[in-house]
Design a protein around this nucleic acid. Structure first.
Lengths: 330, 330
DNA sequence: ATGAAAGCGCTAACAG
DNA sequence: CTGTTAGCGCTTTCAT
């Protein structure tokens, strides 16, 4: 910057002003400086600017990983979410810091904020960590979580309407004439619990019994579908439909069902959750509950920036879900 | 920091030294300061530290997106790569900036470097952008690309041995008694071209003809498999095996083949590429060529940091590939 | 072993 | 409209 100032025969203040588009500077000098900057391939040093402005214009995004596997979840849903958040941040001129954090050490993300690396944190995946998240919020770390809204929650969540999603999927299966609808998902997880709630609600509303035997504690891991199908078959219970809590789970379940010579949808109708890109190209094309990804990134970023701006009244956001009917259920 | 200094009755210099573990400070005062810092929940401001140290300890990772769709590729391979790079960076105490960049405007990533936001850039996906990348390297932007090594290449690549990968897959299919092996992949892309080269090499080595009709220009997009299968069937050419250039492509192709009542592997043996997690849980479990993901992140980061340290002689790295035989081909 | 002072690259009063 | 000056939070000579 000093170089530019010297070459342009002005002070650094003027250069700074010119480059930030201040109206307080002569148009002629402004152009001269801008030209000079371009020809020298000069860009403002963001680090110094941020220091001076006492900001960071950076948001950290955290997708926790499981300690045992050290692996990121390979669910395309997360990549999609990442893209959506990246878009929303880019639109607002924020940088995105991606952090790898052990799911059991969520408190460590406070560091990202304390050290000034990011003005706030977006956590994708609430999992079982309600308490840790409450502690974070109590420490006044600006954080927004993608997940379910829970009672006694100190942190802000953005999530889709899981109860409604579960309801829509189940209602659709009931109306298609299915009588024994299995539910695949770990109801220890808040989001899944709410989908299960919607599932039960639909059954009850249509005068059907809620059969606990039909609920299988399927994990979101890659082999979740296979294991859940095995478990369900061992229970020797009749079922003619399946509501799986993620598309990936639905897909691996369908593969397993096929190995056991069930036909989908003829013998078993299947509905997934998320509506990942792949869902429509699966065989058969997968019926599913769509989470509004484009809105998700926007909503997460808006909520976080509100908190960063000390809006102490930021409310949790519930995004609408939508049933997408394809061949796997009809 | 000034606060701590005051409370500890020392100067900020001492606090700085204590917190950075300098040996030039009395053990007693060091503990006092450390305690104080912890109790105040204080962490060093990384931005200021970086400014003073004229570094950034941040690496930008770029996965370009296609302008038309504005969408990230939903291939789990990329998430896996992201995780691998994140690990390698975390190990070395670097932060990871994730940037969303239009594939047609790759030159814009120079900005990330010019503004000092990152000390260097890791680009995942070479695609067709050889020339743009050469320009970047010519501008002396520290950049490492995941992809194929090409002639007249000014930038550094890290990639797996695509020729060998293509060879292994094809050889395996030939040895399994297959006679008409289709190849799915866009050979405009350098990596795919090399896999095709390996495919041809194997055919020739085993005295088989290379039939151009068997090569289909399949895209990596979600519907790539379906379109390629349609295309191949329209050509009315016999085939009894398929080598697809990604696992995702292999999976969607298998789904499409099944719709057309081909049995896999009985009628058509299929081998994919990448060995994503999902491959072993697919039905049937997918034979594939594994790319060494754990090494990939390490190698990319090592190469980049070497360049950042002005090692002008950083060589491209070729990582080994490995054939994984599962049910889809036997 | 510790402190004073200078400065990383930038911006924002405050004067002129 | 432009320049002077001070300082964001930190590290590091250079003294002591």
């Amino acid at each position: 910057m000093a170089d530019i100032a010297r070459l342009a025969g002005v002070s650094t203040s003027t250069v700074s002003r010119a480059l930030s588009g201040s109206p307080l500077v002569n148009d002629e000098t402004k152009t001269r400086i801008t030209e000079l900057a371009r020809s020298l391939n000069y860009s403002i040093n963001i680090g110094a600017q941020n220091l001076r402005l006492r900001q960071s214009r950076t948001v950290a995004v955290v997708i926790p990983y499981e300690a045992e596997t050290r692996q990121h979840l390979s669910d395309p849903f997360f990549l999609s979410m990442l893209g959506s958040v990246a878009d929303a941040l880019t639109d607002r001129g924020f940088d995105m810091l991606l952090s790898r954090v052990d799911a059991e050490r969520l408190d460590s993300i406070a560091q990202i904020y304390d050290t000034g690396r990011a003005s706030g944190i977006i956590l994708i995946g609430q999992w079982r960590h309600h308490d840790q998240l409450n502690q974070l919020a109590a420490r006044r770390v600006p954080v927004v979580v993608w997940g379910a809204q829970l009672p006694q929650q100190l942190y802000v969540t953005v999530g889709s309407d899981n109860v409604s999603g579960g309801f829509l999927a189940t209602e659709h299966l009931i109306r298609s004439g299915k009588r024994h609808i299995a539910f695949f998902g770990d109801i220890q997880l808040p989001e899944v619990a709410q989908r299960y709630e919607g599932y039960c609600k639909a059954l009850i509303q249509y005068g059907r019994p809620v059969v606990p035997q039909l609920q299988v504690q399927a994990s979101f891991a890659e082999n979740g579908g296979r294991e859940a199908v095995t478990e369900l078959c061992q229970r020797q219970i009749t079922f003619d439909a399946l509501f799986a809590c993620s598309d990936l789970l639905a897909m691996t379940s369908i593969n397993s069902l096929r190995e056991r010579h069930f036909r989908v949808p003829h013998d078993i109708a299947v509905v997934g959750y998320d509506d990942i890109e792949l869902a429509r190209y699966f065989h058969p094309p997968l019926s599913t509950v769509r989470q509004p990804m484009a809105q998700a990134g926007q909503a997460l970023v808006e909520a976080l920036l509100a908190i960063v701006d000390h809006d102490n009244n930021t409310q949790p956001r519930l995004l609408p879900t939508e049933l997408i009917v394809r061949k796997s259920s009809t």
